[in-house]
Design a protein around this nucleic acid. Structure first.
Length: 140
DNA sequence: GCCAACGTTGGC
DNA sequence: GCCAACGTTGGC
């Protein structure tokens, strides 16, 4: 069982949209490294941190789960791109901002906290995943 | 909206 | 295969 982080701009598709839809296809990935993760390593029932990028503020908004493994992205004519399906799991009680991720010593080395990491699909250590969900579940 | 960081393209 | 130019991502 692996853990992931996937980025979406909330203006385009947010955790609230996923909560409403229940399941969605994660289309539009056009980066080879991200595509390879989805195609080769992402498996059914893997858990994913839903990250809001280009947001105010950016950060992790909740969790979703892979329910369908990589298959051809039908939203583009060009062959070779894949998408996965994910289902809504939870919206955090407390949004975990990027600033908070960076400040947490337990999350040192987490890819999303590194400057210049643009990967929109990235692996997450189990311990990092646990720490982020712990933060997200703290009651306000 | 700015711009740094990064990925991709294409001329040579 | 190098690398400059260009396009995109994403924090701020």
């Amino acid at each position: 069982m692996k853990y992931w982080l996937m980025k979406s701009e909330p203006a385009t598709y947010s955790i609230d949209d996923l909560e409403r839809d229940g399941v969605t296809s994660w289309e539009g990935v056009r980066n080879y490294q991200a595509r390879n993760f989805m195609r080769d390593q992402m498996r059914k029932s893997d858990l994913v941190l839903f990250y809001h990028s280009n947001a105010d503020p950016s950060g992790v908004a909740g969790v979703c789960r892979v329910v369908r493994e990589g298959y051809p992205d039908s939203t583009i004519k060009e062959a070779g791109w894949v998408m996965v399906d994910v289902e809504f799991v939870e919206k955090f009680k407390r949004f975990v901002a990027l600033e908070e991720l960076k400040a947490d010593k337990k999350l040192q080395g987490m890819l999303v906290t590194k400057r210049g990491t643009r990967l929109s699909v990235q692996p997450v250590d189990k311990m990092h995943f646990r720490e982020v969900t712990r933060l997200g579940r703290i009651q306000r």
